[in-house]
């Protein structure tokens, strides 16, 4: 849910990107890219293949360097932070990678406990209770806790990855194509899960997705990445009414887009 009475005060923004420019070798990926993610909203990042959606995610997470511009997470610019301050901000951020990125030598329960072990000093009993709670919250059966990632299906791995991302009760969660590779029922269930977790935990969700169903079902706003920057952003229905960019028109006003927009 978008915070009402938005103004430009920085506390209302979970992420602010200004003038981001990035190259891979001689290839320009982003040029003067600006993006605001409001606190408490679910923002979808859409865009064609190869437009750099994953690169943008990795850049925000500081997994990739960039040449110019600034990226602020929860009001602090990573570049100007000391190591300890940076860890504090990182604890407020949870990431679900495409295939879960679970540690293959650990059980699901141990995977969820990794961030707790790393950042907090809690008794084992408390960590077990918390991790099992997170596993239940993402809709996994209790016996999944003692399984290894290789014993889980793709959808279960995603849920387990989400449980690990939520382990420290972060304020922002990044999701990389959360519904890709799931069947439509599983994808719809995952959408509902994200919406209900966002409501209960007051999360800000930054979600890369191709899935028009998810965009219309759960997202407050969509930002479209094309031509090396964000070409359009706004509520999904606003973009349907006024696409303003050829790719956006094709995406939202094509056959599938129209049907889903009409249905919702």
């Amino acid at each position: 849910m978008a915070t009402p009475h938005l103004d430009d005060a920085p506390q209302h923004y979970a992420i602010r990107i200004r003038g981001l420019t990035k190259h891979f070798g001689s290839q320009l990926i982003f040029e003067n890219l600006n993006l605001d993610v409001r606190a408490g909203e679910i923002l979808a990042i859409a865009g064609g293949s190869g437009t750099g959606k994953s690169v943008l995610l990795r850049t925000i997470l500081k997994l990739l360097p960039f040449e110019a511009g600034s990226v602020e997470i929860l009001g602090s610019n990573f570049a100007s932070l000391s190591k300890t301050e940076r860890v504090k901000v990182e604890r407020q951020v949870g990431v679900l990678f495409q295939d879960g990125a679970l540690f293959s030598s650990l059980t699901v329960l141990q995977n969820v406990q990794v961030p707790m072990r790393e950042h907090l000093k809690l008794p084992q009993k408390t960590m077990d209770a918390l991790a099992l709670l997170k596993i239940a919250m993402v809709g996994l059966p209790p016996n999944a806790a003692y399984k290894y990632p290789s014993e889980l299906s793709g959808g279960m791995r995603k849920r387990a990855g989400l449980a690990r991302a939520l382990a420290l009760d972060p304020r922002i969660v990044f999701l990389d194509e959360p519904t890709s590779g799931l069947d439509p029922i599983g994808a719809a269930a995952f959408d509902r899960l994200i919406r209900s977790l966002q409501r209960t935990l007051g999360l800000t969700v930054y979600m890369i997705t191709h899935d028009l169903d998810s965009i219309f079902a759960v997202c407050d706003r969509v930002a479209v990445l094309a031509d090396k920057h964000i070409v359009r952003e706004g509520a999904p229905m606003d973009l349907v009414r006024d696409p303003g960019h050829p790719w956006v028109r094709e995406y939202f006003c094509g056959e599938r887009g129209r049907q889903i927009a009409k249905a919702s």
Partner: peptide
């Protein structure tokens, strides 16, 4: 309201979560 939602959700999820390991 937001606390109520969270508490209900936790209460719903919690009983199943104390299953002993195999």
């Amino acid at each position: 309201a937001e606390h109520r939602i969270l508490l209900d959700e936790i209460a719903r999820a919690a009983p199943a979560s104390f299953e002993p390991p195999p």
